[in-house]
Design a protein around this nucleic acid. Sequence first.
DNA 1: TCAAAAGTGTTTATGCTACACCCATGC
DNA 2: GCATGGGTGTAGCATAAACACTTTTGA
Lengths: 213, 213
Amino acid sequence: MTIRADRLHVLQVLRGKEPFLGGSALPGGFVRLPEDLEATALRELTEETGLDGSALHLEQLHSYIAADRDPRGPVASVAYLAIAPNLPIPVAGTDAARARWEPLDDAGRASDPLAFDHDQILADGLERARTKLEFTPVATAFCGSTFTMTELRRVYEIVWGVALDPPNFHRKITSTPGFVVETDTHRPLGAGRPARLYRRGTAKVLHPPLLRP
Amino acid sequence: MTIRADRLHVLQVLRGKEPFLGGSALPGGFVRLPEDLEATALRELTEETGLDGSALHLEQLHSYIAADRDPRGPVASVAYLAIAPNLPIPVAGTDAARARWEPLDDAGRASDPLAFDHDQILADGLERARTKLEFTPVATAFCGSTFTMTELRRVYEIVWGVALDPPNFHRKITSTPGFVVETDTHRPLGAGRPARLYRRGTAKVLHPPLLRP
DNA sequence: TCAAAAGTGTTTATGCTACACCCATGC
DNA sequence: GCATGGGTGTAGCATAAACACTTTTGA
């Protein structure tokens, strides 16, 4: 997932073979032993999209095994959720040419149904992302290495689909130990007072949490 | 997991074959298609322990695949967390005779190291249980079909390892919509005023959550 | 000097903690 | 009556929402 143009987007690939030839799906592939699950997720992501995996947040989401989820037969899938800043997709590579960022509507659904049970996986991933924003600083994974308080607030507003009060948000973030550290540089936007730039802090969990309204 | 004699216990089985013959492990086994993952977890639990699976809470925890986690070679494990009231383990069945409830110490560890990477799985499961108590009514899964407010509070105190103020706990639970529904019966304990009995409500999540101190 | 966006102060309401106190039962 | 555990009331403190207001820039 990423945020582009104030919209939440999900990475999709066009399938090049049956089943669901020509349909949209989440990127994925098979484990190549002896690599572990996280290495598989990272490798498939970079192979199919050309995205740089070093900057993104990656976590295991859920495992899906059911007899009818793949017409070829039983397939066990371990889904991972990746969160990245707004990165351009390279178009050079063969596989990467089939990848694209697809916006989600207000209900959090893709415009077209996805192959297999990937709509369910996407729904689970979105709910996980919404929850994780409450208790971890993972919102910074949507931003670059430095970001303004307004950019961080937009992450929350877009992922949660709500409006937040800028003054109160600013205070909550800065009063949560280890969430962000302020730099002494600012970013002018053309109009208005330049915003201070922040960097991620070292906290792994938020005390107190930032609960959804 | 269950609670016995004011201590958190985890279900263990004695391994009957190599590797780790004679050692302790979490109960488990292989998927038998076309059953899905949850059916596998439930079947293995009842086969190896004789416990009644109809009353317990069961949820997927995490998937573990790494080249070195099983000496026989790469094995993919999908761990499930089960929470049950204090049930006796039948001793009649062949497999069930090897199962027992093992208490966890204050740090949440088993007395002896478990086979494979099961100590890690146990630690992940305990952390999941502690977190789930905050946001869902799953604490009622440790209790019988009816329970007193003190029994429910003891669940929180034992799983979290903290002391809670009884009056404030009582108010928090009863003011959280759908957590519990009161019955009109009471349970005398020999000394003191009889405690009112409650039943689980219909809520799936707690609003507001019951955060750890 | 004005518009725009960032950030601070302040009021008010709400919730939570600590603990005093009352209730209902067995002995 | 009195000990014991269940349950309610309440004062004081901390937190959070709403919004007025100040700051800092570009035009």
